[in-house]
Design a protein around this nucleic acid. Sequence first.
DNA 1: CGTAATTTTGACGCGCGTCAAAGCTTGTGG
DNA 2: CCACAAGCTTTGACGCGCGTCAAAATTACG
Lengths: 253, 253
Amino acid sequence: MAQEHDRSREPMGALGQSCRDCSLSELCLPVALDGLTVDELSAIVERDSYLERGEALYQVGDAFQAIYAVHSGALKTAELAIDGEEQIFGFHLPGELVGLDAINDKRHPCSAVALEASSVCAIPYDQLEALAAKIPGLQRQLFRIMSQEILADHEMLHSLARRRAEDRLAIMLVNLADRFGRRGWSRDRLRLPMSRGELSNYLALAPETLSRLLKRFEQQGLIAANGREIRLLDRRQLDALAGRPDHPPGGSC
Amino acid sequence: MAQEHDRSREPMGALGQSCRDCSLSELCLPVALDGLTVDELSAIVERDSYLERGEALYQVGDAFQAIYAVHSGALKTAELAIDGEEQIFGFHLPGELVGLDAINDKRHPCSAVALEASSVCAIPYDQLEALAAKIPGLQRQLFRIMSQEILADHEMLHSLARRRAEDRLAIMLVNLADRFGRRGWSRDRLRLPMSRGELSNYLALAPETLSRLLKRFEQQGLIAANGREIRLLDRRQLDALAGRPDHPPGGSC
DNA sequence: CGTAATTTTGACGCGCGTCAAAGCTTGTGG
DNA sequence: CCACAAGCTTTGACGCGCGTCAAAATTACG
């Protein structure tokens, strides 16, 4: 549960199915909950369920029963716009939570779909709420996580709305690198879990524009791209494009 | 998104200074908390503090101590971008909460400034958290409010990012009308609390573009604008532009 | 290995930002 | 109560970033 320990580059190490150290880290991480709490939390968490590429964890309008912690793989949340086009709301990497936006009206406002073979833990919301009422540390932690999501959304919101395409891509790349980095992967080498089309969709760009930008970044020596493999070669300049003077870990999106 | 109960159309009724029914309505409204809870909540809420136009409730980086419920007037939350430009994150109308994005790292990530003479109630966060631990209904309510904010942000995010200027303005107008409407004001006649510059800033438009759009909307008979007074003349068409088939209440921004 | 889907490349056009300047407010001091 | 200044808001002219359309090149997958 400690942050930033430099894990092996093996995705999940030898932890296998146990939810304790992987998927729940978002809940346990920032302020270490004590062992008893973690045990109680583990007790209500349902065993991993597996999703194939393209399989939905839930659909728009489904009744809200649980929030989910991504264990391995990656998900996208999306809805269909009026014109029938998919609109991607966010990507969810291992260790992150999905479904927080459904608490209010007890229905999922978007679908969650696996980008690749993935596994997730379900945390039944009723029980989580009850447990949070019993354990102040957990309640606090939940408030923090939600606050963090609100903040990250605000930042993404304004990045997307008023930065140029170039900046948005830089923001996205360092954001992903940081989020993978937080889970123990390399901070300057990443494998994108989403297609170019999905990425451009999320960034509100035409796929063509994204393609051209990646090429330009490569020509400028900022990155090296090979399919979904991306290496960040000039982190300082990318950070500058992304509008951060130094590089504190970014928010989630 | 709160749900559509039809209150009296008088702005604040005769409630005067009492925080009980006005500023805290966001906390009490959707699922009525019982009387005892509301009393306990009222007990920890600090008396209204008044802000003049342009006065800051808090600044970027200030220590987080309380969340605030807008009682009257209106606030904007904003930060200064790298280039020195102000970037407006959101507007906060009577009955809405400000400061939820500061829970996570105990510092305000943006400033909150009064758009006009305003009054707010401070709700000390430590005490709120303690009370929420004691009263499950309140905890649940807080989770709901935060979830709602996350959802509303997601919606605004994608509105701003991938809709045309025209659509964004329509979205904003119906959004504001709904939010005022929820507080008992007219749903087709509103007085903007923010300047054109602030509105265009929030919508990520040039002020000139906003001006031209308003003119066009007027020529098309969608609205009647006179300074900050706006009348929505063709709600159906505005909803269509905003991308809603019918008009469910919009999110907050 | 063939077919479909994805990604890349090029040509072109439009929406919206930018610059400049003219109204139009709002506030302050004489 | 008017004069002048310092905003705001509007209007017009112009250019560029990025979307759109079309087609080639590459990759993914049965």
